[in-house]
Amino acid sequence: MNSESIREYATELLGRKNLSEDACELRFSFPAGFSFTPGQFVRFESHGLKRDYSITTAPNDKGIELCVRDTGTGHFSSVLASAEIGTEFRFSGPHGYFVYRPSTRPVVFVATGTGVAPFVSMTRSGISGYIFLHGVKHTPDLYYENLFRNAARIYVPCVSRSSDDAESDLFQGKVTDYLGTVLERRPYDFYLCGKREMIRDVTFLVDDYFPGARIYTEVFY
């Protein structure tokens, strides 16, 4: 996991699966010689545009999958989301240090939106037993919910906009609301991935309520 192993690779778009109205999972060929640690990302480059995407597959998968949300404003995500199957792309990688570090402490994964991606890869690689706080605005955005429900010790879908699903175990509110009011106060290993505002707010909560905790972060957008 050092910078010397970062190289450029060619890859081919093999398939696309919708995750929600505006998000999809794209499957690419696994370039020869490429390797990564779950949690790392690749940097796609095309037509002068660059964009980083965390890999959602496990390292021993035959392909590479990415979770892409096309909001209409992220230019490169639009290119990827609308590309024809068979299109060739180039990426560099593996990048990043947001990897799972086993320890004796309880682990809390916190993700918002497509920030779930590195946790999907970690989970598909066999990591389990964590507490997962999955923050979204609406329930259809709970991508990979079943994967996390099966692997997590505690799975908490935090939905910030009102939901009519009274029977479910949804936590009505943001991940920060859950952290500040519900989560038992212990020195956890926190892994945060998502919007910078979430990472900042969770970091402050950890400073205030979880002294001695560790925080590993990846800012997504």
Binding site: F41, H95, R196, I199, F204, T217, V219, Y221
Partner: peptide, 11 residues
Amino acid sequence: MKIYTGGGDRG
């Protein structure tokens, strides 16, 4: 990936 979060704004 973005560089800043503001997580260091409180010292």
